[in-house]
């Protein structure tokens, strides 16, 4: 049994370890180890295409995570304890957003936005001098759609475990609704909100399939990596992959700590 578990862990981590190992190779071959160096990290970090793609990815991940967290938290606050048709409609929307395959969201967003832009641009362009097109905006919108739904689920889940007596006590003691929110509710749901933000960020940063359709002329890091792989494996990709995985790992550890704080009842 134990041996089996060890084998599964080896299966899970060996491929990752191999990429990390090869990324330190000094040679030109992506699939063997020739000496030890940080050459390929230097190459990757000095490659303007990589840096531009990285910047786009970080920008999109950060903005979509911020928006998704704020909007999702607002919706979760309103939906908690709510009944009736509006609640059912929102529950359905959240479910659809989570269940529909990313690839379908991607193509749907692509054809819908291109169609709308084609309709709107003839009068929008002369008015503003700008042309609407796919890019950072559509990336943020499409990523945020999914991650906002995650935030709603996380924050609402947390809200439902809160002790209503605390809010009642605060109201009885004469706090305004906003005061109660700020001093009682918000501190208790903050860990769930933060965890939602970090998950939203990682999702957006790692997403390939939605971005592939809606990125327009922009290139995100996963799109860059994918098209490089298509041209053949290089040690540079190993270095980028290792860095990306290390970064995701850091963010995840953060999310994990937040969630743990969220699950342990804060007592202050």
């Amino acid at each position: 049994m134990r041996l089996y578990a060890m084998a599964v862990y080896a299966f899970l981590y060996l491929p990752i370890a191999i990429i990390a190992l090869f990324s330190f190779s000094a040679g030109r071959s992506a699939s063997s180890m020739q000496g030890f160096s940080l050459t390929w990290y230097g190459r990757a970090l000095n490659n303007p295409f990589v840096m531009e793609a990285l910047w786009t990815s970080v920008k999109v991940a950060f903005l979509s995570a911020c928006l998704a967290t704020v909007v999702g938290t607002m919706a979760a606050l309103a939906l908690t304890g709510m009944k009736g048709r509006v609640r059912r409609v929102f529950d359905l929307a959240v479910q659809i957003a989570v269940m529909i395959p990313g690839i379908v969201i991607g193509i749907a967003t692509l054809i819908a936005l291109v169609t709308v832009f084609d309709l709107v641009n003839p009068w929008f362009e002369p008015l503003t001098g700008m042309k609407l097109s796919l890019g950072t905006g559509s990336l943020i919108g499409a990523h945020g759609l999914f991650t906002m739904s995650l935030v709603v689920l996380l924050v609402r889940g947390r809200m439902e475990t809160l002790d209503p007596a605390l809010v009642e006590a605060s109201n009885d003691l004469g706090a305004t609704p906003f005061g109660t929110f700020r001093q009682v509710t918000f501190p208790q749901i903050l860990p769930a909100i933060m965890a939602g933000f970090l998950l939203a960020f990682t999702f957006s940063f790692d997403d390939f399939i939605i971005a592939f359709f809606v990125a327009g002329a922009e290139t995100t890091l996963p799109i860059y990596v994918f098209s490089s792989i298509r041209r053949g494996v290089t040690p540079e990709i190993n270095a980028i992959g290792t860095m990306v995985m290390a970064a995701s790992l850091l963010v995840l550890i953060g999310a994990q700590l937040m969630l743990r704080r969220s699950q342990a009842q804060p007592r202050r």
Partner: peptide
Amino acid sequence: RARALLLTPAGLWYAAMLLMPLAVVLIF
């Protein structure tokens, strides 16, 4: 009214980025 205000952004987002695109796929 507070609830409606809190739900509006999410509602618009779902309408513009989920329902409208899915409807377009169906129509197309």
